[in-house]
């Protein structure tokens, strides 16, 4: 059971290992706060759709499972979008179209198809939660790196000295690719060292 949760954090991390959901990963991580909000919205959607899908999995006709999953996912995404617009207006404006686009995040349909439609409610929930938390952590790290170098702040708090010149490229799309590439590389180095010690 614990394994279902933990694998999303490291061994099958959606961003660094599975490289899923690249559209929001690259687009919204100009600031750590945006990464966190996007991660939490995605976690909400993946967990609730995972729970619903695994509880109705016996009644789902095989031929139309994908449309059914998509409708369920879209319902939760719309709910998340309205919730953000109602309570966190500024964040929702900054995330723009990327919240509705969670519908097509392959991480979510991937978990529904690969796990929730084949396992019980409890395990599916844990699996989805693990994936969501793993995704959120990856987005926050990515957002923090880009915010530190691109604006000299983390979560809006200034950490670079006054003399620091912002690296504009880090908040531009190119910065997203550069940071993600370096982070995936770093992730692999650590992963290899850890597995060598174990082996």
């Amino acid at each position: 059971m614990i394994k279902d949760f933990a694998k999303g954090l490291w061994k099958e991390n959606p961003v660094f290992v599975q490289v899923l959901g690249m559209c929001p990963t690259l687009a919204v991580t100009t600031k750590a706060l945006f990464g966190l909000s996007m991660g939490l919205a995605t976690t909400f959607v993946v967990v609730s759709s995972g729970l619903v899908i695994s509880s109705i999995r016996r009644f789902v006709p095989d031929q139309v499972r994908i449309p059914m999953f998509t409708v369920i996912i879209a319902t939760f995404v719309t709910a998340a979008d309205y919730f953000l617009k109602a309570n966190f207006f500024q964040i929702s404006k900054a995330l723009g179209p990327y919240v509705p686009l969670i519908v097509v995040n392959c991480l979510i349909l991937g978990r529904a198809e690969a796990f929730a439609s084949k396992h019980g409610v409890a395990r599916s929930g844990l699996d989805a939660l693990g994936m969501g938390v793993g995704f959120t952590c990856a987005l926050v790290v990515l957002g923090a790196c880009r915010e530190i170098l691109g604006a000299g702040t983390v979560f809006g708090a200034r950490i670079m000295g006054e003399g620091f010149t912002n690296w504009i490229i880090m908040v531009l799309p190119a910065g997203a690719f550069i940071t993600l590439g370096l982070l995936v590389g770093g992730f692999n180095i650590i992963d290899k060292k850890v597995s060598k010690k174990k082996g």
């Binding site: 719309t78 709910a79 309205y82 919730f83 617009k85 109602a86 309570n87 207006f89």
Partner: peptide, 10 residues
Amino acid sequence: FVYNYASPKI
């Protein structure tokens, strides 16, 4: 339900 809750706030 979600819409009724959110739209006045929006």
